[in-house]
Design a protein around this nucleic acid. Structure first.
Lengths: 201, 201
DNA sequence: ATAAAATGATGACAGGTGTCATATCGAGTC
DNA sequence: GACTCGATATGACACCTGTCATCATTTTAT
């Protein structure tokens, strides 16, 4: 019996997956949760064989949860199940050594088979993502540049960012300028768009 | 037997819903499609009792499909099933006189019951959205202002927008300025954010 | 038919933004 | 110890942006 925990914030999908997986004879859904914090708790409590983690959830992202599980050396295998084919996400997941990375655009049957493969010690990646593994683009942004971009993304002004980070606004503009050039775009907002698409924030 | 068509672009959710609904004795899923165009075709072909429409799909949005169904006077009842609690979406849906508007954050059981109610002539709205029906905010943006904002959202520059719409850049800035003031924000980008949240684009 | 909106344009101004050259400082590296 | 690199700062410049006043034209409403 494969014991699993499902972490997914959209109730309808979470419930649907749980019901369908429960129908499989060799699978038992021991817990369903809707955010990253609860996911960690549930994994500690139930010690499942593996967990399905959505990435974009409240509190802790699925990637954060994956990293913690691996750091703490928990035996629970990790399967990321997400909408987003972002190179940066995949890279973080690979670095955390997760067992699978699937897109929600796969059929359920693919998920079920992936679960069995992972349980038996295998690894699975959605075929659409296979390319990303080779032609992987490194995140060109420095820590500071990411920080500044994140704040712009939240809607903050140059001045607000400057005081948040205890910098002058000139310096903030320098970081933005550097980021804009590294990303080969023309404005801070295009920079945010591109960095977000790539999963670099 | 309630015959339904499911239009939802995320394969995993679509398949899961189809499988689960199929398990209900009084429901038959006659077609599953992944975009708005196919939805219209399927509805014409199969003449289902009702259809589940996601809003954000390729080609035609679920709202577009709903409007066409109602304009053409097709007997198919329409249930919108979406992630987004945006007042503007709900308003468009109400104007199109759809039979139901549900959030994907509802449990499946809610969906199943809603399907039965709608089949029997009822209407259903996710409880979280009930407020929006009363305190409904009108879209304050003119057609032109929306057009310009949409183009900014695509990442176009003022000059590009000007030549796309055959306007001078001064005029483009005027529309943006008007939109920014109507939305009570400080920049074109905040304007996009707010308008998008409200479902006004 | 006439008033009121909406559409489109222009020019001007203040302030924001992106770029660049340049300088300092500290942490590594050779 | 000299050198390089990243983080930080400054000042200057050109260009972009948001606002406003003003005007002409076309649509819409009464």
């Amino acid at each position: 019996m494969i014991r699993i925990v499902i972490a997914e914030d959209q109730q309808m999908l979470r419930g649907a997956l749980a019901s369908l997986l429960q129908l499989e004879e060799d699978i038992e859904v021991v817990a369903q949760v809707s955010n990253g914090d609860e996911a960690l708790q549930a994994i500690n409590t139930y010690q499942p064989d593996l967990c399905l983690l959505d990435i974009e959830m409240p509190e802790l992202s699925g990637l954060d949860v994956a990293e913690r599980i691996k750091q703490e050396g928990l035996p629970c295998k990790v399967m990321i199940v997400t909408t987003f084919a972002r190179p940066g996400y995949l890279e973080r997941a690979m670095e955390a050594k997760v067992e699978a990375y699937l897109l929600k655009d796969e059929p359920i049957q693919f998920l079920v088979e992936a679960i069995r493969k992972v349980y038996q010690g295998g690894r699975v990646i959605s075929p659409e993502l296979a390319n990303f593994l080779f032609e992987k683009e490194e995140n060109p942004l420095s820590e500071r540049e990411q920080e500044v971009l994140r704040l712009v993304a939240e809607g903050k002004s140059t001045d607000e960012i400057a005081s948040t980070l205890y910098l002058t606004k000139g310096t903030v503009r320098n970081y933005l300028s550097a980021a804009i050039q590294k990303l080969e775009v023309n404005s801070r907002h295009q920079a945010i768009k591109k960095a977000t698409e790539k999963g670099w924030l």
